[in-house]
Amino acid sequence: MNEPLLKAQGLVKRFRTPSGGETIAIDYVDIDLYKGEVIALIGESGSGKTTLGRALLRLLALDAGEITFDGVDLLSLRGSQLREARRSFQMVFQNQQANLHPRLSVIEMLNESLRLHQPLLDEESRIQKATDLLDRVGLTDHHQRYLASLSGGEQRRVGLARILATTPKLVVADEPTSGLDAAIKLQTIDLLKELRGDSLTYLLISHDLGLVRRIADRVLVMLRGRIIEEVPIEGLGKVKHHPYTQKLLDAANLGSSRGQAAEVMSTTTASIEDVQGRGPGCHYCELCPLLTNDESLSIHCTSHRPPLENKVACFPLSVQRGNTL
């Protein structure tokens, strides 16, 4: 764990809103991903986590920032160089059907990927390889099947097999278990874990804390385009968290006891998105419980943006953690 596999600095992405204004989807984010680690990026929908995941893989144009992947300046790659580089970083889309075709059979889809990414193989060894890949994801008897006859979990597996047809070092998985029922979710998680065997780095974008607890090594919490806290998985729920992280955790715990984690999460979402406009201060200052009885802190928080210091973007907590270290 010395040089990060992917190092991104000062990423900024702005979007035009239909009304002509601008929103900032990624707000000066720095992120390091190390080889073989699983990083979970959590936050409610609209926090910019999907945008960040896509930006890291150069799937959208950034307004500012630098990304180094495996020693290469990613943003300087063009055309065929970039396409070749994509072999080593792949993405699992939330919409699992996005890269599958209703008119190609499973084996044809894999064959297509292999032709693209392992051009030296001949037809016969491609079929052999595709068969191996399907065995690996547990779809041995599904060669001639089409998308419509596959279950959600099986579609996910085909997607994963397609990714394995490349030689990925980094996989960004956007909600890889959304839309799956509990049993298949577990299978998919196991599969993800297993595929990790070959020192793959994962960036897992999810609001499913159950999934995160199972496989992540490190958790990044995102709020309104900023990363506001970074916790190793062992520390999750044990250290004193940023009040927003705490709220997410509480919501998830409350939800899982009722079996409705997702629902509670989305309620949290609504209450945050209700508060419009972003002042110069902390993104959480309108809702922060720490401010209620501290006048001077309140003034500071609403006029200054807390940097990510001691792995938490919160003035009082950064100081506290600094003291205990």
Partner: peptide, 24 residues
Amino acid sequence: DYILAHVAHGFHPLKIISYHILWL
């Protein structure tokens, strides 16, 4: 997402337009 997923997978834009969109 359909197009982005193919770009992400590493296909050439011309191939995406001619094969994945027009033909398929």
